[in-house]
């Protein structure tokens, strides 16, 4: 076993149970039954995420990063271990509307305007009409889509659609924002701009963010904590606390501190591959 991986696991196991942690996982296992036999998507995953942290999950396909996020959301159920979200089970947290979830595809309804799409969770959760209107206006301006409330999704670019989907996840003001490769389908330039905006958004709202990505620069730029994962079985091999300042202009990516962090992530990813 690689020393870093061992360190990450012991560190995870030694963390105290749920003291101020928004998300606390301990020894999570998840095995999917497939036609080709069982697939271990998560193996002994232990992690704590504190309030207001921005945590990125990075690793190759099949490393369980998306699965972990889905377990947090109550979309998958672990076959072993324990997990608490806001001190509750993920299902109870879901019913308490503890988080907003952003998928890779914006998934806006073509038959609703942008405002209508953002309003969707508010309608489902039973907010009053006036409250819906004011919240939609607020979050649309938060993602800088003020002028687009009456437009339909097909009238917007891919990047704008994804911003609308983030607005939708923010509209009901949950404390946690779970994002599953939200910018994965966008080009580099749009992605940079959205990363910058997401930083600003995070600073403005103080949400706890879980962010799944394939991109090392994106993970390092955004995160206060980077979780490096490895496949077969899906597990954590390194948890990197970022020492970058809270204020992060895009050109911070050329500083030696940034490059050192990116290097450490890359080494972790390579170490994960050594198991193959």
């Amino acid at each position: 076993m690689m020393p870093q991986a061992a360190a990450a696991l012991t560190e995870g196991a030694a963390l105290p149970a749920g003291t101020g942690a928004v998300i606390a996982a301990r020894g999570l296992d998840l095995t999917f039954r497939t036609a080709d036999g069982p697939v271990q998507a998560l193996s002994d995953v232990s992690l704590e995420i504190g309030r207001g942290e921005f945590v990125s999950f990075i690793g190759p396909s099949g490393c369980g990063k998306t699965t972990f996020l889905r377990v947090v959301a109550g979309l998958e159920h672990p076959t072993g271990g324990a997990i608490a979200v806001n001190g509750m089970t993920p299902d109870a947290a879901r019913q308490a509307r503890a988080y907003g979830y952003v998928f890779q595809a914006a998934g806006l309804y073509p038959w609703r305007t942008i405002a209508g799409n953002v309003k969707l969770p508010l309608e489902i959760m039973g907010f009053s009409k006036a409250e819906q209107e004011s919240r939609v206006r607020k979050v649309l301006s938060l993602v800088e889509l003020d002028g687009f409330a009456g437009k339909y999704p097909w009238q917007l670019s891919g990047g704008m659609q994804q911003r609308a989907s983030i607005a939708r996840a923010l509209s009901f003001d949950a404390g946690i924002l779970l994002m599953d490769e939200p910018f994965g389908a966008l080009d580099e330039i749009v992605r940079d701009r959205l990363n910058e905006e997401l930083m600003r958004l995070w600073a403005a709202t103080g949400k706890t963010v879980g962010f799944v990505t394939h991109s090392i620069p994106e993970a390092v730029y955004l995160s206060t904590k980077i979780v490096v994962m490895s496949p077969r079985p899906g597990r954590i091999i390194d948890v990197i606390e970022s020492d970058l300042p809270a204020e992060r202009p895009l050109d911070i990516r050329d500083t030696p501190e940034f490059l050192a962090l990116a290097h450490r992530v890359r080494v972790g990813l390579r170490a994960g591959h050594a198991y193959d």
Partner: peptide, 17 residues
């Protein structure tokens, strides 16, 4: 798509909704 249904599940939407 599954993601669309997942999204409504995260809102705790009822089957009728």
């Amino acid at each position: 798509e599954a993601a669309q249904l997942d999204l409504l599940w995260t809102y705790n939407a009822t089957p009728a909704q």
